[in-house]
Design a protein around this nucleic acid. Structure first.
Lengths: 212, 212
DNA sequence: ATAATTTTTAAACAAATGATTAAATACGTT
DNA sequence: AACGTATTTAATCATTTGTTTAAAAATTAT
């Protein structure tokens, strides 16, 4: 049985199913998650999954959409009105992204695994993901390239900037277990403390790597 | 049918199955790979999978072992006799690791996904993976910590060093599609060219981040 | 209260899937 | 060639898995 969020407001059957599905799909992927697992985890009758969501695939696509929104959307949308420098954006993203990942540690593996096959070779990437990616290009890449022209930043392909920023933020979460073993970290608390440290260090590191 | 490596030396049935299984398991994971997929991809009769490997699970564990060896083992073993400085090790690892990943681009996602559940909470990590990780600690972490004592490197938790090094090397491969979309890279060739660039840049970046 | 509608349940189905069996074929040894 | 062993094949089995059905229960409307 899934616990209710506040102990006050019960979740509807439909929401209970979706939440359980999101947790399982995100943790174990589409194939490894069985409809009966979802039913059990949400404490509902198996048939209700199809009653509310038609099929396992439809339910997965719903979860997928929400996860991509969480993974790509949350941050960029905060830029809309603010007028931030490239450095400020880096700091902002590092800060908020790491906070988000601390609460959704399985998100990166999930998105990475299921975005791989998405855009069919040859055809343009579409849908919500592609749109977000366009925004990221606009907000980061163009800023950096402007900085290169001004002579502030080293003249490297912006892919390196993007890769390094995202790699520094996300990678620890995709490899938590391995990383903890390697670095002699024994518990989750210590891991989280180090992640909080990174929020401040990543902007400094990016600066050190790319500033002239 | 699986192509033979050289057109000269045919692979044995057993090897054909294992190679096909490795490719599929690495690409799609355990659950998403069906025994019939493996049979078809290797051009063998379905029953031969069980004849040679007893079960799908046993076959998977074999592939898993080889993949972990590839992912963690290859590099560290080259250190045995050489006497390299920390910086030289970083350069060496970046170079060889990226080469290896260019040939096995699906490896990181696979290992990350399947290593997560491995060490049961509370009990010590054992097996070949744990051993390799000990070597990595020995060869990198201790070196870095010595550098900190000498005042060469900034006094940060070695986890950050490990995370940044591995993140810079591996992350682009776990998010190739997304990264290419973000940075406006259109084809694999261009991606590979950029990865070769990184082999030289990563040591410089690590230096910039951690040297006093 | 009664009827209509929505939600929930237990049971069942059809297809997919991992594994096994028994017979057939290929191969090596004497 | 004849035998024994190893490999391969087609067919089949038992479970698992996603989905459907029809009836029961709960809820809402009249």
């Amino acid at each position: 049985m899934l616990k209710t969020k506040k102990g006050e407001q019960e979740l509807s059957t439909e929401e209970r199913i979706k939440e359980a599905a999101k947790k399982l799909f995100t943790q174990k992927g589409f194939e490894a998650t069985k409809t009966r697992d979802i039913a059990e985890a949400s404490g509902i009758n198996l048939a209700l999954l199809n009653y509310y969501f038609r099929s396992k695939k439809k339910l997965f696509e719903l979860v997928m959409k929400e996860n991509i929104q969480l993974f790509l959307g949350v941050i960029v949308e905060h830029f809309e009105n603010k007028n931030l420098s490239f450095e400020e954006k880096v700091a902002f993203v590092a800060d908020h992204y790491i906070d988000m990942l601390l609460e959704n540690p399985d998100l990166p593996s999930f998105v990475q695994q299921h975005i791989k096959t998405r855009p069919a070779p040859g055809e343009e990437a579409k849908g919500p993901a592609a749109q977000k990616i366009q925004l990221i290009r606009k907000y980061f890449i163009e800023d950096f390239e402007a900085g290169v022209k001004k002579g502030i930043y080293k003249d490297v392909h912006p892919m390196h900037v993007m890769a390094n920023l995202m790699g520094l933020i996300i990678w620890p979460f995709t490899s938590t277990t391995m990383l903890m073993a390697k670095a002699g970290i024994s518990n989750r608390k210590e891991f989280e403390k180090l992640m909080h440290q990174r929020k401040k260090m990543i902007p400094i590191w990016i600066k050190a790597m790319f500033e002239k």
